[in-house]
Design a protein around this nucleic acid. Structure first.
Lengths: 205, 205
DNA sequence: AGTACAATAGACCAACCTGTCTGTTTATTC
DNA sequence: GAATAAACAGACAGGTTGGTCTATTGTACT
């Protein structure tokens, strides 16, 4: 039974932090936007930093859920990986997108021991393992390395998309991912992926 | 004839902004560190924002110069591109590295019209065109697209390296770049790059 | 009706911020 | 030695910050 005030506070804080940054949005801005008294904030969250942590955790589970929903209908684990980049492209081109909040958090909180920095790192780690697990399910070679590469690709796409808010970065990341996946299952001694090259779009090169 | 005080101010500000962020470091911190009076800051730079812009521009030309120095001794334009990722790896593993300041700037200044945000974007654009020019010199296919992909890779490596400060992200980015380059010059009708596959390290896949 | 709890508004605090102003010292140049 | 300019220390202003405290209001349960 989450208090409705608490939920509204969380939603407003999240929106403001996303669009205007963590340090530049003051407590009072959030309070005004949410139509909530200052004490309910401090009773529910304790401090601004803990509110930020709550927002990050909330956004993290949201994002992971959305990603998993987006690929839930895909059976082929190989295609699931590419589906993640499609979901990223959708996100980047939606008008509510204004950059990855977790990248912003690690930039705004350089002290790696600060609570917001820790929360943001945890999310990025979650994404990282998500990619690695998908690579394992797809029975690809070197799933750890491949997972790292894919999550790095996603970071790069997020980073670039903050500037040019189109599908382009994520689409290009998808193309690169496709090439990597192709390589990771075309090893001598291992059969090519059942429905592999045929259904794939051709690289620009 | 740059005033020595101005130079020291710039250097100290840059160091503090890099390690502690733009919003969290106050004017007085910089003044103390540089051993300089407040008025010399405002006489030389006008405002904190303009100081930030000066720092970003200073760091940008430094970084571009270092990159070009790092690849100056390389004749093969194909290898030059890979050399950029080697330089990135060196940077990321040096103990002074604490994340890409330009990525931090675009995160800390969400308003795209703010002077610091503009300065940071200009740097990222400079890197982007640098990659594209190298692709053109290497006479690779689709140099624009390839250049975008490479700069996105570099962004991803920068982003990931902020968390784990090792060569690993840049090395992985280099491996991916190698694969892309290989594809971009192995087109029917065009000869494979003269010293291509032999001298390259083998992919993990 | 009465009690307990949640949320309210708003005053208040100390610390910090960027930026300005003043008067003094230092160094350079004529 | 006089004059010009740069740099100095430090007080000061005006505003904002995160956070605390109090006293009041509304609401639900028994």
């Amino acid at each position: 039974m989450p208090s409705p005030k608490k939920a509204k506070l969380l939603a407003c804080a999240r929106h403001l932090f996303e669009t205007e940054g963590f340090h530049t949005t003051g407590i009072d801005r959030i309070l005004d936007e949410a139509g909530v008294a200052k004490m309910t904030l401090y009773n529910n969250f304790g401090s601004k930093d803990m509110l930020i942590v709550a927002v990050l955790n909330d956004a993290s589970s949201d994002m992971i859920n959305q990603l998993q929903d987006a690929i839930a209908h895909i059976n082929d684990p190989y295609e699931q990986i590419l589906g993640v980049f499609d979901a990223l492209a959708d996100w980047h081109s939606s008008d509510k997108f204004c950059g990855c909040m977790f990248q912003a958090a690690v930039a705004e909180f350089p002290d790696p021991n600060s609570a917001p920095a820790i929360a943001a790192r945890e999310h990025l780690l979650r994404l990282h393992t998500l990619f690695q697990e998908m690579c394992q399910r797809a029975e690809l070679n070197s799933p750890e390395v491949l997972g790292s590469m894919l999550s790095m690709l996603a970071s790069g796409a997020n980073c670039t998309a903050r500037q040019i808010r189109t599908r382009v970065p994520a689409d290009q990341a998808r193309q690169i991912a496709e090439i990597l996946l192709e390589r990771a299952c075309a090893r001598p001694g291992q059969a090519t992926h059942p429905i592999a090259p045929a259904s794939r779009t051709e690289s620009v090169f």
